[in-house]
Design a protein around this nucleic acid. Structure first.
Lengths: 326, 326
DNA sequence: GTGAAAGCGCTAACAC
DNA sequence: GTGTTAGCGCTTTCAC
């Protein structure tokens, strides 16, 4: 009933634990001896304890991921990218959701540190920066995702979207579709959203269009979207921009509930591509989330000395929701 | 640069390691001593090594999840349910995707075993059963998800949907919507699909309707859906049933590409609810995936002696894609 | 080639 | 209360 240890195997094979360790990890052992050891391994159903192994290495082989919320399409794809690289490197991924709760976030990052993860990917707020920075200095590669740090600490890698470019891209596309009055909905005051708005405003400005502050609403939760939408619609905009894929469904629903149709009543442009995008004809600005996840995991695996600052370009995926011309 | 150990803390505080361990884990220590220890902990930035701790416990506090593919809506919700319970219990979750590759699956389950996970949730094929069974016998609670085992091994918990009920529910709903010729698309020969088909066939049978074998097609990948659909459509069905949420988008697209509209040209009924369901008016048979994930994690946390066999009831979420009346 | 023995960072008796 | 000491399961010198 009890698990066999390396000592049990050694006893069964009539050798020392050192020898067993050698055949398991590829040291120089005579053919015949190795055979006896493998026999014992099999008959005892021995499974090495990775935890104990990690004591010597100083750290585990697991990659830690602390994410806002798996439900968001961006994070989901990011996760898949991380998983792919981890899997190819024999690493497992350990993850935890923060649900935007700073307390949870700090706790999870701490736990990851205690687990001596091989590296850490954090996508959440700024509350973890202190510890993350120390972890990085201590030799655990850490990569910050999707966040713009004013002055990024050395050692901390970062992977992000060029948010200003995304905003500008939105402006240019809407202008090219003949829209002149844009309303924006975001999900709380995140730095990435601020940058997207900056880009949007600049792009609009170049076309002689303004983006006044009251054309921007915010909804921290899906339940707040309807109210925010109502506030925006009194301005009679001809285009709605949703700054995050996390709110696409809710914004779409709020509009649909009012009987508004795309692109006739309103142009609709949102962030992050999603599976139903083509079917619904919704034009999006896509982030290469999967690629970003892969690169993040690669940074952990490769652990370069110099802090990497990776910025990815957004991509416009044109469909029909903005009244695109043929 | 090097990490502080419990010994470093002890030295800095002028106490023994045992005392440090006590203040960290809540033993009886004098107030003043504890204060000195905490001071040392802080100044040395000491973070206990969870790996080493787990050696004593015999296992880690992490819950392992080996899943087919995070992309599927069912598995995603399942995962969120698991995460919720794990998080509430101070556990982290470690996961790996198999992408339906038996080789990957075996390797991942093995790795989880080596990691001495507190418990394991497996959603994949049968290739892991041997090892999983041994793990369970060895005291690691294992729960099999969404799979019907002919004769489930003792010790292995299982959490599944009542697939026959789901099939019957589909039949009854379509019949009540006046449909008489049903075509079915599945994703490969999974036991759960077989059961759903059985239920569907029985339900249809009670209404005097048949479900011949050539009204059932299979698509192992999204890329095969279009061809499978073409084969089904020659029978001129008045209803299409999709047996898995993983194929909903592809099936919907294949139909839409042919200019077929719901519910006028065809009824459309699929498995697993999804965010865009309401917007698209697609009627679904939902699995309580989140709840199932919670229960699976609870089984691991509680680790009951008797193997649990949990079966969940599907739920019909009526919208408009089947031509529902009023 | 192989074994004995010293640790890895920590907990848990057991003394004082 | 606090320290000493013996492990937990494993890797890794260092002899032989």
């Amino acid at each position: 009933m009890k698990r066999a240890t390396i000592g049990d195997v050694a006893a069964a094979a009539g050798v020392s634990v050192a020898t067993v360790s050698r055949v398991l990890n590829g040291g120089a052992v005579r053919q015949a001896t190795a055979a006896r050891v493998w026999e014992a391994v099999t008959s005892l159903d021995y499974t090495p304890n990775a935890l104990t192994k990690s004591i010597f290495a100083g750290r585990s082989s697991t990659i830690g991921v602390v994410i806002d919320d798996l439900t968001s399409p961006f994070y989901l794809d990011l996760m898949r990218g991380i998983d792919e690289v981890a899997s190819a490197n024999g690493s497992l991924v350990m993850f935890a959701n923060t649900f935007h709760d700073p307390g949870r976030e700090v706790a999870h990052v701490r736990t990851m540190d205690e687990q001596r993860v091989r590296g850490l990917v954090v996508t959440s707020g700024a509350s973890t920066d202190e510890r993350t920075r120390r972890m990085a200095e201590g030799g655990t590669p850490c990569v910050i995702i999707a966040r713009s740090l004013p002055q990024p600490p050395p050692h901390l890698h970062s992977v992000k979207l060029d948010n200003r470019a995304a905003g500008r891209m939105m402006a240019e596309h809407l202008v090219s579709c003949g829209r002149r009055s844009v309303a924006v909905i975001s999900s709380g005051p995140r730095p990435s959203h601020t940058e997207r708005i900056e880009g949007l405003r600049r792009g609009l400005g170049e076309a002689g269009l303004a983006l006044p502050d009251d054309a921007i609403a915010s909804a921290d939760a899906n339940s707040e979207v309807d109210e925010a939408m109502a506030a925006l619609l009194v301005r009679r905009p001809d285009a709605i921009v949703c700054l995050t894929g996390r709110r696409t469904v809710a914004v779409h629903s709020a509009l649909a509930a009012r009987g508004l149709r795309f692109p006739d009543d309103l142009a609709f442009l949102t962030m992050d591509d999603f599976a139903w995008g083509p079917a619904l004809g919704i034009t999006v600005i896509a982030q290469p989330a999967y690629r970003m996840g892969q690169r993040a995991a690669e940074l952990i695996v490769e652990n370069p000395n110099r802090a990497a600052r990776l910025t990815f370009k957004p991509e416009l995926i044109t469909r029909t929701s903005c009244g695109e011309k043929g």
